[in-house]
Simulated scan of single mutants.
Amino acid sequence: MTIFRNACFLLALLLAACTPVKTLAPVTSPTLRSGELTPFTPPARITPSAASPFTPTPLPSLTPTPLTHIVREGEDMFGIALQYGLPLDALMTANPTVNPRAMSVGMRLLVPAGERPTPTVANPTPTPLPVRAGAPVCYPRLDSSLMCLVVVSNTTATAVENLSGVFRLRVNDGNMLDAPAVPLLNLLSPGNGLPLTAVILPPTPQHFELGFELTSALPVPEPNTRYLDAHIEGLEIGVAPDGLSASVKGEVVMPPTGASAQTVWVGLVALNAQGRPVGVRRWESPQPLPSGQRMAFSTMIYSLGEAIEKVEALVEARP
């Protein structure tokens, strides 16, 4: 029995000797120096400066895109300016190579994108003078647009210029449709009436309530250097039998002294039997008019609806 146990023990030793021994790497501790501590430094915090706060870059504002108008038969530059609610001078400035008296059908005109300034302290809204606006009226046209007219009378003793206003149409659903009004001339002398017009392009409302608001009427500053003292002589008006048109002719006369007129306009307004405006027209001189000289004019004016009872003529001359 003892011999058997000795043999088993010897066999176990032999087996252990044949098994490879795994060597473990020694673990080394970092060497610490006594009396030395490494201070902890927190990361720096970025504080925005109050003197220069972050300001987001504003987006660029959109620039209104100009339009192109193709001249149709029977159109003139003044009527085209009315369609877009622009002064004639603005349309002429946008088309410096176009002769307003020699436009052909199919000609392309650049229509500037008008924009009303926002009133500020530096650009206040002018207070209109106490001129009187008559009853506004709108007429449908063959192209389904509306032509709106109103006559503003100068009851003051001061010449007035730069008239402007807004036609307001209240439609059945309660919404308001505003159309800027353009004067036939720049100058409104005391005792005269000047038509303001607007064209509302289709689609137009069939039923509406019409109103008008005068937004600007400024006194001509003294001394008056912007307008010349021209007048009309020999005015002859011939109304057609059906009352839908009238021929107008006469002469513009300049005073014997003073500057020559580089621009001469004759503004015509046709009125019905009740005194309401039914048509407008503006004649423009083809050339300057020297002082002491006279220039004949002849044109036609047409009614937008009711028969023409009479035609009134105004003149404006500028150096």
Rank of each mutant, 00 (worst) to 15 (best):
T204R: 09
N186M: 10
G211N: 11
P202A: 15
R141I: 02
Q206W: 02
L169D: 05
G174E: 07
E161W: 01
S164F: 09
V150Y: 06
L201G: 12
F167G: 04
N162P: 00
A217E: 03
V166T: 15
T204V: 15
H207K: 11
L149W: 09
L184P: 05
P180G: 10
S144F: 05
D173F: 05
T158E: 13
F167M: 03
P203V: 06
G211S: 14
A157T: 15
N175I: 05
A181Y: 07
T225D: 08
T215A: 04
L185N: 09
S164I: 01
P202M: 12
R170Q: 12
A159N: 02
L188F: 07
T158K: 10
M176L: 08
S216C: 03
T197S: 15
E222R: 08
A181I: 06
V182H: 01
A159G: 12
N186C: 04
L214D: 13
N224F: 00
D173T: 02
F208W: 07
L196Y: 07
A198I: 15
L201P: 08
L187F: 02
P205E: 06
V199K: 09
L169Q: 06
A198T: 14
L194C: 14
S144P: 04
T155H: 14
G211V: 07
C148I: 05
F208A: 07
T155I: 14
V150R: 04
G193W: 12
V182L: 06
T225L: 13
P202N: 14
R226M: 08
A157H: 14
P203A: 03
R226C: 03
P221E: 00
P180H: 09
L177C: 03
T215G: 05
R141G: 00
N192Y: 10
A217V: 07
P205I: 09
L187Q: 04
V166G: 03
L196T: 09
V171G: 01
I200V: 15
R141L: 11
A157I: 12
A179H: 06
L163D: 05
L194Y: 09
P202W: 07
G165T: 12
L201A: 15
E222N: 05
Q206S: 12
L214H: 13
S189I: 05
V220G: 04
A157Y: 09
P195S: 10
M147V: 08
L187M: 05
G191S: 11
V171W: 01
M176H: 01
R226H: 13
S216M: 03
P195G: 12
G193E: 10
C148A: 07
L194P: 15
E209A: 14
V166N: 13
V150A: 02
P219S: 03
F212Y: 03
V151C: 02
L169V: 09
L188Y: 08
D143W: 02
L194E: 15
D173K: 04
L149D: 05
E209M: 14
L142R: 08
T197M: 14
V150H: 07
P223G: 02
T155Y: 14
L188D: 06
T225K: 06
F208S: 04
P180T: 12
E209Y: 11
E222H: 04
L210Q: 01
R170P: 02
A159I: 02
G174D: 00
T158W: 05
L194A: 11
F212K: 00
H207T: 13
S164G: 14
A157Q: 13
L149R: 06
L184S: 14
T225A: 13
